[in-house]
């Protein structure tokens, strides 16, 4: 699992990346009440806002950590947005993307680096 400074995580299996927001982000947001996941077929560039997550107190854009084409959004979150709080780094994933440049994955932080980054925040 790799991480961004914007608190997204990515798991890469073959050329398919699964993307979500980190446990730290979910905790900071508080109770998530709504998630808008991207439609399959949408082409995203690393750094693009490609999903929205809302808590009662904030609405935040989620940025694509990696470029590619969306193949699936997590439809479970439509009815059960609280999954993002309960299981942020697994069942609370946002989207799966077929990546166009796998090398972007390697440029992201690993967990110790992300944790070190959080410590500086």
């Amino acid at each position: 699992m790799r991480f961004t400074k914007d608190h997204e995580w990515v798991v890469l299996e073959g050329d398919v990346a699964t993307i979500g927001i980190t446990a730290h982000a979910a905790e900071q947001l508080g109770d998530v009440v709504f998630v808008e996941t991207p439609e399959p077929g949408k082409v995203v560039k690393a750094g693009d806002a490609f999903a929205v997550v809302e808590s009662v107190k904030a609405a935040s854009d989620v940025y694509a950590p990696i470029s590619g084409e969306v193949i699936e959004g997590n439809t479970v979150l439509g009815d059960a947005p609280e999954t993002v709080n309960a299981d942020p780094e697994n069942g609370g994933w946002f989207a799966k993307v077929r990546v166009s440049d796998p090398s972007q994955y390697d440029a992201l932080m690993d967990r110790p680096a992300y944790e070190a980054f959080l410590a500086t925040q």
Binding site: D6, A25, A58, S60
Partner: peptide
């Protein structure tokens, strides 16, 4: 994601 920390609890 953009992190906004308006620190306000929203349920009892």
């Amino acid at each position: 994601m953009t992190m906004q920390n308006i620190g306000r609890p929203t349920r009892p």
